[in-house]
Write a protein that binds this DNA or RNA. Structure first.
Lengths: 231, 231, 231, 231
DNA sequence: AGATAAGCGAGACGGTACGTCCCGTCTTCTG
DNA sequence: CAGAAGACGGGACGTACCGTCTCGCTTATCT
């Protein structure tokens, strides 16, 4: 996962921190340039789409030679995913409230916040670009999706231990159903993507909180309770 | 909605079928060229991605002047969506089996078939392109999504009338949850997109068929039945 | 010379004036369109160069179908030369003052007036276009140059008869030397093209008028001494 | 005058030969590409006219990117004039025989040789193109015409010092009359452009050589009689 | 009067070249 | 040896005209 899409140059990050602590000869990589490139990438990506973003523009905006970009990233996708990862890491953790419904809907609401922020454009750009660049998609999965999913597993397993969810549940199916509902409205934009929508999705998939039951009793009873036992 | 993304030329389709039956002066649009362009677009799109597809290549493949393409479609996206819609219309209908679960899962399996076929690339291309071109996304929604959704509403309403689903159900939430699960795995490709996955999603969201109960009794009872009553 | 560059259609000009006086069936050529095309051609040529002039623009400006232009003129050059000839005929005649110097310099001054007028652009355009289109050059010679040259021969022969010029003079050499001096400054634009320049050229080639002698005594005395005193 | 029509890029010719001898950073301009472009330009110009010449064809023939052409020359004319100047510099000098007539007619015959060679097409192309592109014409004057004219002045001044020509002669008028006669027949092509024509023009304007008098006695006697006998 | 014929405007057609943009690579000098 | 600068061959962009074509309509002569 490390350096997923980056080039394998001499002075790249992670290359000189071996046990010996020796550095290679020659000028070391400019951390300043690296960050300027990230900054410009994210900045430009908020104005244009993935396909409208050009290395030329990034290099110009970052006051950096085009070759410096190509030296460290093999293509646009690798750079974008790196820039995204470098900026998005610390957010989006799962709470532990003692209720799956609350844990999941809170985290999904956080995620919704990200999608609505300027960084939402970047997520869209990554997924768009990933449709024609498998490595970009891989990077998105490894660097963004997987870390969150690991946490989500824990949240769901806690719910199973508490008895809130059945034991033989396929966690991936649950998570893809929950998050798929978000991604769908985010990517296709055919309907409102609101906190209330998230609550309804969670209710539908996880069973809602007590106060929700009165408003949707029939679905639960009919679709799953009675139907299940009575027929 | 008609001619959503097409140029506003004189001899466009739908322009001469008014009540008067008169044609405009000037050479009429070449239906032959139009179809050759569609054919080449779909053909090339199965080999390359949306961004790798070029108008130049389409025109060359269709033995058509580049200007003829630009005369009728303002951009690549408009052309692709038109070509896709012209080829995808007649499929993907909903059966009426008397069971929501069966109706929905059958149609979703059909849809899965499309996504797995060469035309799946086109759906991916449209959604990717749509992230930077709102009109493309609009066209996708109007020409592809909406017709299917109208049918889906009917299917769900039949289920409500039969008492399979509760009356105050938000149909859009149900549909986005079901199809979002498909789109998510289709676009992010992090996990298998199989008929079995579809069945599990339908079970989770709609409640499974009778024969499925034995295999997943706990989920239903725990997640929704017992949980609902017990908490 | 007739219809030098025009196409050979049925209803073209000069086609129905045969002995029989019969017209062909079918709609006759529109004289109105013909003149509108000429008008637009000359108008547009004053703004742009020959190569910058387009049939498309002429047709649009003349409110005429592009095919109507192509029906009657095989190419841009033919049209331009036709338009020019239709507008320039009546000018540029030679006076008969009894002095070659005066006859020639007066006519050359008239010509200078044409070159300085908006029509000068057209002469330049014709000669420029003629460098890559032999027919255009031929048309320029036949329709514009030759008629004037015929008159010029007469003027020079009168001078020979009067004894102003020697008998075995090559008239073409004299005329090309005189007019070449004008064309050179007109086309290369390296120096002033004034009435005074014309007088000096005439003096140099033909011998100047008596009153010019004081200002340029040595050249005159040497080059044309006897001539000057003898006439 | 230097770089008359060339673009103002960093690594253009003449840009690094300052006193310091330092080069600018960045890849230097490819001399190889420059010469290949010139070669192809001249080669193609001998087959087609100025307007038929395309940058696209030049770039293809020179195995060079189209952008490389546009990087250094703003338009076709600038390129053509540059290519022409780079190939025509060393010729067309004036002899010093002790006779204006001989000096001028010899040089004019050399010039005639150029006009008749494949390079003649280029001169025609330049003057044609120059009618719609003032900069092209300027370049032609500065790079081609002026150097020759400087030499011509010296030739004529020598003649004045020798007493062959009068002192107050307007040299430009003489030269434009002589060369105008050539340019006129070259550009309009209405009559033969031969060495004999040149001799006749020189005789007419400068007074012929002694041995020429027998062949054209009347003109000479009248026009230049005294001069001829008195010298 | 009707048939036949040709010109008219409009405007779409397959093409070609335009001049621009960016690609990803390269070559050079500077730090 | 990295970095900036910037030129390189390449290729697609979207536009402008080319000269041709197919329309519906108009204006004539010929039967």
């Amino acid at each position: 996962m490390r350096q997923l899409l980056s080039g394998g140059r001499k002075h790249g990050r992670d290359s000189d921190d071996g046990a010996n602590g020796r550095r290679l000869p020659g000028r070391p990589r400019s951390e300043q340039a690296r960050q300027a490139i990230f900054r410009s990438t994210l900045k430009l990506l908020q104005r244009s789409s993935f396909s409208g973003l050009t290395i030329e523009a990034i290099a110009a905006d970052a006051d950096v030679g085009k070759a410096t970009v190509y030296r460290w990233w093999p293509n646009k996708g690798a750079l974008v995913v790196d820039a995204f990862a470098s900026s998005a890491e610390p957010e989006l953790h799962f709470p532990n409230t003692g209720s799956v419904y609350r844990d999941m809907s809170l985290q999904m609401a956080q995620f919704l916040g990200v999608l609505r922020s300027p960084r939402g454009r970047i997520v869209a750009a990554l997924l768009a670009g990933g449709q024609s660049d498998p490595e970009l998609l891989t990077a998105f999965r490894e660097r963004f999706l997987r870390p969150r999913r690991e946490e989500a597993y824990k949240t769901l397993r806690r719910a199973i231990e508490r008895g809130e969810l059945p034991e033989n549940l396929d966690l991936d199916v649950v998570l893809d159903t929950l998050y798929g509902a978000i991604y769908m409205r985010f990517l296709i934009r055919h309907d409102e993507l609101s906190e209330n929508y998230i609550r309804e999705v969670c209710s539908l998939v996880l069973g809602g909180p007590l106060r929700k039951q009165t408003s949707r009793p029939k679905l639960r009873r009919k679709a799953l309770g009675i139907c299940a036992t009575g027929s």
